[in-house]
Simulated assay, not measured.
Amino acid sequence: MTSSVAPRISCNTLYDDGDARPGQDTARIFNIQRYSLNDGGGIRTVVFFKGCPHICPWCANPESMSPRIHTVRREAKCLHCTPCLNDADECPAAAMERIGRQVTLDELLKEVLKDDVFYRASGGGVTLSGGEVLMQAAFATRFLERLQALGIHTAMETAGDAPANTLTTLAGHCNQVLFDLKIMDPQLARTILNINQQRVQENFALLVARGIDVIPRLPLIPGYTLSEENLRRALDFLAPFKLKELHLLPFHQFGEAKYRLLNRDYAMRDVPAPDEQEITPLREMAQAAGYHVVTGG
């Protein structure tokens, strides 16, 4: 975001390291999280893909928004070298940290297969997340094909806002799709999140019609989705599909430190996480509609 940097600039400035684009044979990721229990069944490895077309004010992974690889400076570690090379590989104090990396199909497969024994023992597998994995669908599809050929359970987390063919091709290689429904009002979804809600709902219906195991998830965000009205609209939309499970994802502040690191404003900085009294009526609404409700994913 900043093109030139003085040696003693205040901390947490973002630098871009280039804009080479990933493709069918390479992908851009920013994290691999092992031993996850909240992103599908069993013990899972979650691969976080970089880049997202949406602008959710509550995003807990702001480092995922840009598709580009960038470097941040951790001021607490900085020795204020002169001149500063702004290079994560050369920094003597490890104050410069690169966010994002390019991986090949074979490299990523090798990394996730390190946990294969845990998948087999627990009924787990690999989940693709982001960012928005649909932005790198060509690579992700090939990656899931390889995993399924090895008998590994596959899942993805998505907001579903992409051309139908892109979504259905990728979802066709998933054993499960964790599908986020956010602001249900189409105009507000477009204005606040840059989400095409009509397309999202059409895509959701298409996946269910194709027999894919889809689990709807609804974030509970104060001021945006933490309301009976938004939940009611979600339940009305979901009613014809007769699904059994719904995940409610209460807002948290786990991402706040990342905004400081990236030197970005955080719209939710002073917003407290909802307490049980706020969550309980919404959970009871969903249960009354016949869902097994999982709170927290």
Rank of each mutant, 00 (worst) to 15 (best):
C91M: 03
T26K: 04
I32H: 00
Q33I: 07
R98F: 12
K50L: 04
K50E: 04
P62K: 08
N38M: 13
G41S: 11
C52Q: 04
E90C: 01
A94W: 15
N86C: 13
D39S: 08
L85I: 07
E63W: 04
D39F: 03
Y35A: 08
A88G: 01
A95C: 07
N31E: 12
H70A: 15
N61A: 14
D89L: 08
L85G: 05
I29F: 05
G40E: 00
A27M: 00
H80I: 04
F48H: 07
I32G: 01
P92F: 05
V72D: 03
R44T: 05
H70Y: 10
C91R: 00
R44M: 03
H70Q: 15
S36T: 02
T104L: 11
R34H: 08
C78M: 09
V72Q: 05
I32R: 04
Q102S: 15
D39Q: 09
M96P: 02
Q102Y: 15
V72K: 03
P83I: 00
C59G: 07
L105Q: 11
P53M: 07
R44H: 02
R101P: 07
A60F: 14
P57M: 09
S66P: 12
S64E: 10
G41W: 03
C81N: 11
A27I: 00
E75V: 05
A93M: 02
M65V: 15
Q102I: 15
C56G: 10
V47C: 05
P53E: 03
G100K: 08
N86M: 11
I43N: 13
W58I: 01
C91N: 02
P83Q: 02
I29G: 04
R28H: 15
G40H: 01
P92E: 04
Q102K: 15
G100A: 12
S66Y: 06
T71F: 04
D106R: 14
L37Q: 08
S36F: 01
V47Q: 00
A94R: 14
A76P: 10
N86D: 13
G40K: 00
N38K: 02
D106L: 12
A88V: 04
M96Y: 09
R101W: 11
T71I: 09
K77T: 10
S64K: 07
A76C: 06
E63Y: 05
H54D: 07
M65L: 14
V46W: 00
L79M: 10
P57A: 09
I32M: 03
M65S: 13
R98T: 03
C52S: 04
S36N: 02
T45G: 02
D25G: 05
C59D: 00
L79Y: 10
S66W: 09
D39V: 06
C78W: 09
K77M: 12
V47S: 02
P62L: 09
V72F: 12
I99F: 00
I32W: 00
P57K: 07
R34F: 10
S64P: 14
C59F: 08
V103K: 05
G100D: 10
Q24E: 14
V46R: 00
P83W: 06
D89Y: 09
C59I: 11
Q102L: 13
R68V: 11
E63V: 02
C56S: 06
W58E: 06
F49L: 08
N31T: 09
T45E: 00
D25E: 08
G42V: 02
